[in-house]
Structures are given as structure tokens and as C-alpha cells.
């Protein structure tokens, strides 16, 4: 009759020693090694501490109904200007030409966030004025919610000049976010919720494009209008208007942020644990080998001996 194993259990083998022995030292050293070696290994292989992470979010963008427009004509001494800032208009008395501005926001997927803004600016021009260039600043309220709650005033700048006089400029592009630093994990960030153009100022210097742009680009978080395919409709128009039209789209952005404490810790723990388990296993085998063969001397307590084998 064949013999079958019907039950089994492990036997504890105890090794004992006093406090100040090489065996005690070995066990402590092995413990510390098991603990720290994985950490060092994981640290050296980079990426233990998660410094920054990514997420995607579609910003909540609202057109602020503020804009500044400059139109260059063939007359070198003159240009056309207009803005929604009364002080600017007051300064530009001689160049002021009030356009017809139409905007329409659209929420394609009806998720409550606007996806694009259609705009059209038709500037009345005289038949003698040939438009050679256009500069347009549109201002938006830009918000992010998912990690840090960011709120800022964003700018879309579009510019085109052409040696040929035109009747229409069409710009269809995207309002993209430019991050110089990662966003924080959790905070209300209103650092840049300040006007891009100081409309309260009565000084010409505050409305100079160079100043507006250098102030804006020094922000850590800013936007730019990306229009790869601008269209300049050549030939002056007989309809006595110059039309600037286009679409500003608000795409989903890939955002970099500094992860929070627990995210960093969990990520590090996952990596540490993976290596730690291997070390625990290996060191245990090493210890078993050393104590079984008594490479380091200890008091070996005999485990319980089955009755049959007792003499």
C-alpha cells in the first residue's frame, strides 16, 4: 500500500546566542542590509521620489470681451487702433476706428465647458487705405480645477503682416498653455489673475506692445495662440471693411504638476517593496545557510524530536 502524505507542518529551528556575539552582530547587520539595500538600489536606479507627474485637463476658458487692435495701413505715418479700454482709445484719438466685433462661444460636446470662440472683427477702412498688417490681442479668463485651482488672465496674440494689401485675415488656432514650472498639487493659484493690459493707466507706455508682452512672458504660467495656418486674403476690399475672423479653440492640455506627499510616498513604497521582498527572501536564505552550517557559532536548540526516533 502506497504511503501518502496527508498532513505536514514546518518545524521551527531556533538558534540562540548572547547579546555581544558575532552572531548578534550578523543578524543586526543582515536586518539593516535588508532594510537599506533595497532603498539604495531603488534610489540609484532613479525615480524613487516622484518629482513631477502629468495629467490632462480641458481648461475652462471664457472670453473676457476685452481686446486691443492695431491695423497697419500703407500710410507710414498712420495706423488704425482700437481697444475695449477707454483710456487707450482716448490716447489714440487720431487713429481710432471703431470696428464691429462679433463673438460666439461654442460648447461642442455640451459638457459645460466651452470648446471654442468664434470671433470676427470688421474694421471700417477707407477706399484709400490699404491694410498691410494687423495685430490683435484677445483676453481670456483661464481656469484649471483638477489639482491646483488656477485662475489667470490669459492672452491670445495674433499678428500678420504682408507686403500685399489685404481684405481679410483668417486665423484658426488654439489657445495653448505654457508652463515654466510645474503646477502645485493643491492650492488656489491666483498669482496671475491680474490684468495683462492695465486699462486704468492713462500713460502711453503702459499700452506699448513690448511692455505688455515682456510682462506677460515673464509669468510662470501663460498662454499663447498657436495658429499654424493663418490666411491673408490679398487684394484690398472694395467693401470698405477689413475683416479679421477666426476661431480660438481651447484644447485639453497636458499639465505637469508636483505630486502631493501621499502620492510620492505610495509611489516610492511600491518600488521599495518590490525590491525589499527579493532581499528578504535572499537574506533569509543566506541566514538559514549560515546558521544551518554553523558558519557563525550559536547555541542550536534541537527542535522537538519525533517519538520513533528517540533512543
Amino acid at each position: 500500500m502506497a504511503v501518502r502524505e496527508i498532513y505536514s507542518h514546518p518545524v521551527y529551528q531556533r538558534y540562540k546566542t548572547s547579546l555581544c556575539t558575532s552572531a548578534t552582530f550578523f543578524v543586526i547587520a543582515a536586518f539593516l542590509f535588508t532594510l537599506f539595500a533595497p532603498f539604495i538600489l531603488v534610489f540609484w536606479s532613479e525615480g524613487l521620489w516622484l518629482k513631477n507627474a502629468f495629467y490632462r485637463e480641458q481648461p475652462t476658458v471664457q472670453f473676457k470681451h476685452q481686446m486691443l487692435l492695431l491695423v497697419d495701413t500703407q500710410d507710414e505715418a498712420s495706423y488704425l487702433a482700437w481697444s475695449t479700454y477707454q483710456n487707450f482709445n482716448q490716447l489714440q484719438q487720431q487713429h481710432l476706428r471703431i470696428p464691429l466685433v462679433k463673438t460666439r462661444k461654442e460648447d461642442n460636446n455640451r459638457d459645460g465647458r466651452y470648446d471654442m470662440l468664434h470671433f470676427s472683427v470688421s474694421v471700417p477702412v477707407l477706399a484709400t487705405e490699404n491694410v498691410l498688417g494687423v495685430k490683435l490681442i484677445l483676453l481670456f479668463d483661464y481656469r484649471l480645477y483638477r489639482f491646483s485651482s488656477l485662475r489667470m488672465e490669459a492672452m491670445a496674440y495674433m499678428e500678420h503682416t504682408s507686403p500685399l494689401s489685404g481684405s481679410e485675415f483668417i486665423a484658426d488656432g488654439e489657445l495653448r498653455l505654457r508652463l515654466k514650472m510645474p503646477l502645485s498639487h493643491k492650492a488656489v493659484d491666483t498669482r496671475y489673475d491680474t490684468p495683462v493690459i492695465n486699462g486704468d493707466s492713462v500713460f502711453v507706455s503702459d499700452y506699448q506692445l513690448s511692455k505688455i508682452f515682456s510682462d506677460y512672458i515673464s509669468r510662470n504660467v501663460s498662454t499663447y495662440f498657436e495658429c499654424r495656418y493663418p490666411v491673408w486674403q490679398r487684394g484690398p476690399s472694395s467693401s470698405e471693411t477689413f475683416l479679421i475672423r477666426g476661431t480660438v479653440r481651447y484644447p485639453e492640455e497636458l499639465l505637469v504638476y508636483i505630486p502631493g506627499f501621499f502620492q510620492v510616498l505610495i509611489w516610492a513604497w511600491v518600488q521599495y517593496l518590490a525590491v525589499l521582498l527579493i532581499f528578504i527572501y535572499l537574506i533569509a536564505r543566506v541566514k538559514t545557510f549560515i546558521f544551518q552550517n554553523q558558519l557563525i557559532r550559536t547555541i542550536v536548540e534541537r527542535p522537538f524530536v519525533p517519538k520513533d526516533h528517540r533512543l
Binding site: F63, H65, T84, L96, R97, I98, P99, L100, V101, K102, T103, R104, K105, P124, V125, L126, A127, E240, T241
Partner: peptide, 30 residues
């Protein structure tokens, strides 16, 4: 109201800008 090419106000009541649904609009004249 509609602006003429030189920026003054158009006086002809038939020649004005229609308000279209959904289109925010801003216009003026001098």
C-alpha cells in the same frame, strides 16, 4: 448702429447691423 468707413455713425436706418442669435457683438461709431 453701424459705423461708416471713416468711423462716423451711419444714419440710414435700413443700413444697420442685424443682431444674430448667440453672437456677442460690440460695435460703435464716432
Amino acid at each position: 448702429v453701424k459705423s461708416t468707413a471713416d468711423g462716423t455713425c451711419e444714419t440710414n436706418p435700413d443700413s444697420r447691423i442685424p443682431v444674430n442669435f448667440g453672437e456677442d457683438l460690440r460695435t460703435g461709431c464716432m
